[in-house]
C-alpha cells in the first residue's frame, strides 16, 4: 500500500510539473498549448536516449531534456507567432502528434514503437521503498523549485507584463512591451518545464515509448489546471495532485460498485471524471484557487 501511494505521489508530482508548464503558457501568457504531450515526449526521449544509449549521467540527461524542451518551445512559438486561441491550439496539437509520429517512425533515432526499455533510474530499483521515496523527494523538489520560480516571475514586472499581453496585446505593445519576446520567453520556459517532467517520468518508469504520449495526457493536465485554477502556480499544483487522487479513487469506487461488469466499471470511471469536472466548474468556475488581482506596486 505504501509504495502504491508513493508511486501515485510521484505521478502526481510529474503532473504537477506539467500543470505548472500549462499554467505559465495558458494561464499567464494566454497561449493555448495543446502540445504539452509533445514537449513532455521531447524531454523524455532526450534524456532516455542520452542516458540509456550513450551512458550519459542522469543529471546531464535531465539538463539536456530541459534544453531540448525549451528549444522545441521556441521553435513552435516562432512558427506560430501570429496565431492565438483556437488556431494556436490546433497547431500545437499538431506539433504533439508530429513528435509522437516521428518517434514511432524514425526507428534509427528513437527505437520506434518498441520504445526505449531499461532507462536508468535515479535511485536504485532494488532498494524497494527507498526507490519510490527517493524519487518522490527528487520530483517534489523539482515541483517546489518550479513553483518558487513561477512565484518570483509572477510577482516581477515580467509577470505583470505577461499578463498584460494576455489581456490585450495592443495595449501592451502601446506601453512599449515586445509582445513577441514575452510570448517566446513564456512559451519556451513552459516547454522546458514540460521537458523536465518528461525526463523525470522516463527515469522513474524506466520505459519510454510513443504510446505514452497520447493527446489524452494533455487533456488530463488541462482538467487539472482548470480545476485547480489556471493562473496560480499553487492552483496548478493542487489541481494535478487532486486529479491523480481522483482518477485513482474512481478505480476503487468502480470496484465496490455492485453488479457491474468490467466493461461497465471502465465506463463508469470515465463518466466519473466528466461529472467531477462539471461539478468543480459549477461550484468554482475559476478553479479551486482563482487568480488574485495584484495591486500596483507603491512607488
Amino acid at each position: 500500500m505504501l509504495t502504491y501511494i508513493l508511486f501515485m505521489l510521484v505521478v502526481g508530482s510529474i503532473y504537477a510539473l506539467l500543470a505548472q508548464s500549462l499554467m505559465l503558457s495558458w494561464g499567464l501568457a494566454g497561449l493555448v498549448n495543446l502540445g504539452l504531450a509533445g514537449f513532455f515526449a521531447v524531454g523524455a526521449y532526450a534524456s532516455a536516449m542520452l542516458t540509456t544509449w550513450e551512458q550519459a549521467p542522469i543529471l546531464v540527461g535531465v539538463s539536456v531534456a530541459v534544453l531540448a524542451g525549451g528549444l522545441a518551445g521556441l521553435l513552435v512559438c516562432f512558427s506560430t507567432l501570429r496565431l492565438r486561441d483556437d488556431y494556436l491550439a490546433i497547431v500545437t496539437l499538431g506539433f504533439a502528434e508530429i513528435v509522437r509520429i516521428v518517434a514511432s517512425n524514425e526507428v534509427w533515432l528513437t527505437g520506434g514503437t518498441d520504445g526505449i526499455s531499461g532507462v536508468p533510474v535515479m535511485i536504485a530499483r532494488d532498494t524497494g521503498v527507498w526507490f519510490h521515496l527517493g524519487t518522490l523527494l527528487i520530483t517534489v523538489a523539482a515541483v517546489i523549485l518550479v513553483y518558487v520560480l513561477q512565484r518570483r516571475l509572477l510577482a516581477s514586472p515580467w509577470g505583470r507584463a505577461l499578463r498584460a499581453v494576455r489581456e490585450d496585446q495592443t495595449v501592451a505593445s502601446v506601453a512599449g512591451k515586445s509582445i513577441v519576446r514575452f510570448k517566446a520567453q513564456a512559451f519556451s520556459l513552459a516547454a522546458a518545464i514540460a521537458g523536465l517532467a518528461g525526463a523525470l517520468y522516463g527515469h522513474y518508469t524506466s520505459y519510454v515509448a510513443p504510446d505514452q504520449f497520447q493527446p489524452l495526457i494533455t487533456i488530463y493536465i488541462f482538467l487539472a489546471v482548470t480545476a485547480g485554477g489556471n493562473a496560480r502556480p499553487a492552483g496548478a499544483v493542487l489541481g494535478a495532485y487532486l486529479l491523480v487522487a481522483f482518477l485513482e479513487a474512481t478505480r476503487f469506487l468502480a470496484e465496490i460498485a455492485p453488479g457491474v461488469t468490467a466493461l461497465q466499471a471502465a465506463a463508469l470511471r470515465e463518466i466519473a471524471v466528466g461529472i467531477g469536472l462539471v461539478i468543480v466548474l459549477t461550484l468554482r468556475p475559476d478553479g479551486l484557487l482563482p487568480e488574485r488581482s495584484q495591486k500596483a506596486p507603491a512607488s
Binding site: 500500500m1 509504495t3 502504491y4 508511486f7 520505459y207 497520447q214 489524452l216 485513482e248 478505480r251 471502465a266
Partner: peptide, 22 residues
C-alpha cells in the same frame, strides 16, 4: 483481482501498481 489497461501504457502502469501494492 481485475484491472483495465485501457490499452495504454500510462494507464496500465497505474493499474499494475495498484494490483501489486494494494
Amino acid at each position: 483481482v481485475s484491472e483495465d489497461t485501457q490499452t495504454s501504457p500510462q494507464a496500465a502502469v497505474l493499474a499494475a501498481k495498484k494490483l501489486i501494492d494494494v
